[in-house]
Nucleic acid binder design. Structure first.
Lengths: 193, 193
DNA sequence: TCGTGAGGTATAGCAGCGTTATGTCACACT
DNA sequence: AGTGTGACATAACGCTGCTATACCTCACGA
């Protein structure tokens, strides 16, 4: 019942339908009370939906295979992150409506850790000289997040993603100490969606 | 009456009070009908509030004086943009809830144009070699937007702004062709909030 | 075997929300 | 001076999330 409600809410979200208590209960085939026994109300259900969104994101990023080029991997992770957001824009927006209070922040942490570890491998491989992996991952994440939100909300056209994301990533990786030309090649290779 | 409603709504927004039709009408000292005669309902009022938010942003950016160092100016514009967002986080979030449909998109365009013109001056001054000013401005804007939203929503601590924003800007400016050391100095100089 | 208590669900009603239909008034124009 | 047009007030409608209450089911122990 818990999972049925969460998945139905996520489905209504991607279908751009308004996620309402009564509509949700009707579709799942139960009464409105179920949301209160399992989630303590709509805010609790939204928190569970955000949690599920981050869990899916973490699984998706974990599915990106690591290669012997950690910079390429970072770009591939960015591409997977972007694809996940573009495929389910409403869910992505809902995730960050209140991303600060998650029932279990570890799911979001796991997704972020994948980025940090790839950056750490780049440091270890001598690509990022004297760079902080957490800082590199944070900057990549924040920059990509902003670009994605602007595209999702229709401010920038969809083509802006392929136009700007690789350039921004290349700039960040080069600033981390990687050779600019080599960064550009790695990003071009990793950013295949 | 129109402006009174918009300003009251913006005030309730920054005060973190729920912006409700009845509460708004009561505070302004009118009835709920005023919102319908002037804005055709709450969505119209929200559009007007977003419009006002972008107008304030454009005025703020226009108030940043240009110097003989266009890269420094870009950093200063970024700092002003960030300060505006941090001072009125709820308004900033509301602005981008549906930034794609504004009554008069020219206000948002004016704010963006300030960025583009500074980037164009950097190209003209030979700092950004063969770089597209619009692309540079877009990347700066998107990256700053993402970082700001993560800080505003509490995902990243407030200190992340001063830690990451200058570094990201420096990376973008260096990628545009500017000398890395010179970019870093200009950004450090412009990013004074 | 038969209560019995506890947990999940159904029902009905609450206050609040945005919206709309209708009524009322003041002011500008001929 | 009459008239109509625009803005505001009032009341009601349907919807929202939420809660109090009743019901039903099932596991458990005398």
């Amino acid at each position: 019942m818990r999972t049925a409600l969460i998945e139905q809410a996520a489905a209504m979200l991607v279908a751009r339908e308004p996620v309402t208590l009564r509509g949700l209960a009707t579709r799942v085939g139960t009464s409105t009370m179920a949301v209160y026994t399992h989630f303590d109300g709509m805010p609790g259900l939204w928190a569970a939906v955000r949690q599920e969104g981050f869990a899916r994101l973490a699984r998706r990023l974990a599915g990106v295979a690591a290669t012997d080029d950690p910079v390429r991997d970072l770009a591939a992770l960015g591409a997977a992150y972007a694809a996940n957001a573009v495929e389910h824009p409403a869910l992505y927006r809902a995730m960050f409506d209140a991303a600060a209070d998650l029932p279990d922040p570890e799911a979001a942490g796991a997704a972020f850790t994948v980025l940090v570890e790839a950056a750490a491998r780049a440091v270890e491989a001598g690509r990022f000289v004297a760079a902080d992996p957490v800082a590199v991952a944070t900057r990549q994440w924040a920059s990509g997040h902003g670009l994605l939100l602007l595209v999702i909300s229709g401010v920038l056209p969809g083509a802006a993603l392929d136009e700007h994301a690789p350039a921004v990533l290349t700039a960040l990786f080069a600033a981390a100490g990687d050779d600019p030309g080599r960064s550009a090649a790695s990003v071009r290779d990793g950013w295949q969606r």
